[in-house]
Simulated scan of single mutants.
Amino acid sequence: GLETARVLALRGATVIMACRSAQKAEKAAASIRALNPAGQVVLMTLDLGDLDSVKAFADAFRARYDRLDILVNNAGIMVPPLGRTAQGFETQFGVNHLGHFALSAALMPLLERTAGARVVTVSSFAHRFGELNLADANWHARPYAPMPAYGQSKLANLLFTHELQRRLSAAGKDVLAVAAHPGWAATGLQGDSRGSTLANRLFAQPQATGALPTLYAATAPDVTGGAYYGPSGLLQLGGNPERVDSNARSHDTQDAANLWALSERVTGVTFTV
């Protein structure tokens, strides 16, 4: 997120950094402003683990701005112990998918009236071992497993992207819904254990390179709706961005429609295109 914000600001965009921690946000924004970017960096508070915060952010954003060119849904929580969001959702499903779903719904009117707008949702190659369990998406009835829960949330990101693009196309909108993944980037997401540190040293690419697929999805002229972009290197771990494939589960139209309906029901948000 920091690298994406840095590049877009340097290129002249007004970047709204929607952050949970004001202290960390100020430090991150200062590092970008120190580069004398052509664009502006604006801080706003957003906690995707609390739907009340999502609504407050969206209300404040709509009051302040009359357009939104690019929405980057890139908040990510990876394999934590079992936790619950403010509304009781399993943390990874709640933040990685449901929070972004509610945010995108609230900002869709601005996106629709901004020519060429895009919604970029950051998934992961971890979607490949994700299974969507709509009967127990929030892990109430089964033993919690952090990595399968992460995989489910990343699969949900792709199902959401594909369903959103279908709805945008059916409504005749020129908004694009696309997805991206960074490969393996040394961002700190993996934690600071000895094993994670060694693995990052051996396999990870720099944060700036990991941001390239997101930036490509957000700005490249040849991007198509519903497409997925990731690194071009071995196993998609690193390298320059290109269009990549996602697994068959991510293209299941019935699962996507059912996930959309579940997301509306549990969040209380009606997502209208």
Rank of each mutant, 00 (worst) to 15 (best):
R249V: 00
D245C: 13
G230V: 04
E264C: 04
V41T: 12
W260P: 01
L82W: 10
Y216E: 04
L176V: 05
A28F: 06
A156C: 12
L98F: 13
A105L: 06
A145W: 12
T209E: 14
N240P: 07
N200K: 08
P241W: 01
A204S: 13
A126M: 10
T270W: 00
V15F: 05
P80C: 14
V7I: 14
A58M: 12
Y144L: 10
H181F: 15
T214S: 11
H251F: 09
N96C: 08
R118T: 01
G238F: 00
A217F: 08
P109V: 02
T45C: 10
L168W: 01
L10I: 08
Q87N: 03
D174A: 10
A256S: 11
L159R: 00
C19N: 14
T14Q: 10
A105E: 01
V15Q: 02
V178D: 04
T270C: 09
H97G: 01
P213V: 11
A106D: 02
A257R: 11
R20K: 12
G130N: 10
I70W: 04
G230T: 03
R243Q: 15
V95A: 05
A177V: 00
T161H: 03
P146W: 06
A141V: 07
A115L: 12
A257E: 13
P148W: 05
D192T: 15
R67W: 09
S21L: 06
V178Y: 02
A30Q: 13
A22C: 06
V223Q: 09
A149P: 05
V266L: 12
D192V: 14
G151A: 11
N73V: 11
L48A: 04
A248C: 00
A115S: 13
A56K: 14
A75R: 07
A227T: 13
V72N: 07
A227D: 14
A227V: 02
P231C: 07
T187R: 02
E264A: 07
E242D: 13
D59C: 05
L10Y: 02
I32F: 06
H100N: 09
D255I: 04
V120W: 09
M147W: 09
M147E: 12
A185D: 04
M147F: 10
V119D: 00
N247S: 14
E90G: 03
Y65L: 08
A199G: 09
